[in-house]
Write a protein that binds this DNA or RNA. Structure first.
Lengths: 343, 343
DNA sequence: CTGAAAGCGCTTACAG
DNA sequence: CTGAAAGCGCTTACAG
């Protein structure tokens, strides 16, 4: 026999029809047990594998999901946000468990990234992942909706469809950070990150943080807020600029761990010690967080839970089932980058 | 029109046959320029996308590569080796550039992981990535060969087929590490990693290291060698055991950055300072390396170059072209975890 | 330059 | 329980 074996080859050897082979391989209850066994045996001998293209074409689905990862245009080749990399890991595993393949693709946030994975039947649905400018996303999400594409989305909200997106309770996370720093007798609070509608996740974190301070009759001086995207170098530069402007602070909440790591570098360079002079808290709990020096206190988002739920929800959507909107609960992880203020 | 548009729908609206539509969409030179334009226009209006399952079935290929990532059985869910994650990034990009989709899958090293991606026509070829027990790999690679599966492999050698694997010059990398430490007047050398045939990459690194020492009339005391797999905790425990056994050393070469990071943690815990008491050098230059404290001196393997070449070679293989065996050149990256010995 | 037709390898309704 | 047949949506050799 030349090339790969087909179901006709098996039929030939088993002395049954090709339809029966197909049924047997799919373990249809219609098929006689003995026949089923014989077919499976021959299939194994011939090293037969169902041709996915043929079966997908026939059944009009692909058993494949596509993960689209958007990168900030500034992100360079080598540095993919570790938080998303961790998500990728858990999504891959969740797909495997569900018997789905996963197609991975990086997209520029600027591009027309709804791509054509679903239209071309390469994937049954999309998982969207990425920080970036929220405003830009909205119209693209609209397009996906109009197109009836099945998708779920980490972070960004889909207008009128809360079920299509998943995120952790960023507001609560911000509150946890604020409470932790307050409990350490810190009183001069800085925030680094984009607290605007362009980055709703960061914005919510900031709001939670701010609200806690206000509840304790404190406030955050707007001069102590510096804008940054989620990279180490952006965090470094933002912090550096605060310091050069002689802004004083004894506590710093960074909107992400990457920002926090950059902030710590800037602080050290300026001769400030962490946590003695400045308590620094991040957000995400990326794998690196425990390796940096000092190990980073942070707000943890469970990537494994998140990945699992994204896949689960997407599969429900594909199956035409309802999805309940859920929000993940973040947790404070205390390490050594924060400490009570010494008097 | 219900559901997705097909080439027949376009044919209908364009007033040509479906064959002509297909040719026009593929920009066949046979087709009249005006017809071609009209077809493209209508396709766009109908939001038509070629059904990949159908075209793949017809052409018997998939324009998809599969990336199989093996994990050490000990690796837990959250911690995928960052070196491979970086490779994943560059491989994804290289695939996109070549017009290929990338299927990603994690595999247990123990499993029958040649999987059936190629047999089932889900992918045209495989990229294998992963540390792990080399001995176990060999028979699996043999199976892939016997199966005529197209694949390339990072690190592990394929018997008699050097062209199927790609790696950096680990021996040279080991030499670079040795030379650097020698240049710092260090004289008591420890090595952490699995220097055996089970981990040929680590073994080569060790051999290069050892040879340089020997050339300088020095040697490595076997008691100063500790076994470790490529994780932070394994590096930590190995180093910890050296210290508890009162083994003295002023320089440490870790077979990977992850190991080095764990080693630094153990050293600090034992009250030893890095680099003053012990110079530590790693291998890989993972993104974290520059964030840890002190920033890690290491031997860099270019993941972007590596990913690109793996994809390039695999595509050549698929096309039936010859692949020249190539080996990447590692580079010494000096940071602050190593310093000249103070007298 | 274009069209009618075959066929890629399956799955599944239909008939027995 | 089984088989003959249709058809998923393309690509491409063949004929004009």
């Amino acid at each position: 026999m030349k090339g790969k074996a087909t179901s006709f080859d098996i039929a030939h050897f088993a002395g049954v029809s090709q339809s029966t082979v197909s049924r047997a391989l799919r373990n249809s209850p219609l098929v006689n047990e003995e026949t089923r066994k014989k077919v499976h045996e021959i299939a194994k001998q011939l090293n037969y594998k169902v041709d996915k293209n043929a079966s997908n074409l026939r059944t009009q689905q692909s058993s494949t999901l596509a993960l689209l990862l958007f990168e900030d245009p500034t992100a360079d080749d080598s540095q993919i946000n570790p938080f998303f990399l961790a998500m990728l890991g858990s999504i891959t595993r969740a797909c495997a468990r569900a018997g789905y393949d996963l197609l991975v693709s990086f997209q520029q946030a600027s591009q027309d990234w709804h791509a054509d994975y679903e239209d071309s039947h390469r994937a049954d649905g999309l998982i969207l992942l990425g920080y970036g400018d929220f405003i830009d996303y909205q119209e693209k999400l609209d397009k996906l909706m109009a197109n009836q594409t099945k998708f779920v989305c980490w972070g960004a909200q889909v207008p009128n469809r809360p079920d299509l997106s998943l995120r952790c309770d960023n507001y609560l996370g911000g509150r946890l950070a604020g409470q932790h720093l307050l409990g350490q007798q810190r009183r001069q609070f800085a925030f680094i990150g984009d607290a605007s509608e362009h980055s709703p996740e960061f914005n919510e974190r900031f709001n939670g943080f701010k609200d806690v301070l206000v509840e304790h009759n404190m406030c955050i001086d707007t001069r102590k807020i510096a804008n940054a995207i989620s990279t180490e170098s952006s965090g470094y530069h933002a912090t550096h600029s605060l310091i050069s402007n002689k802004i004083q602070f004894d506590a710093l909440f960074a909107a992400s761990d990457l920002i926090a790591i950059g902030a710590i570098r800037a602080l050290k360079e300026a001769g400030l010690s962490v946590p003695e002079d400045v308590s620094v808290i991040g957000f995400d709990d990326i794998p690196v967080a425990s390796f940096v020096n000092p190990p980073l206190t942070t707000i943890s988002q469970s990537t494994s839970k998140a990945g699992e739920m994204l896949v689960e929800n997407l599969l429900k959507l594909i199956a035409g089932h309802e999805v309940v909107h859920d929000i993940l609960t973040p947790e404070l992880v205390i390490r050594q980058s924060t400490s009570p203020l010494a008097d």
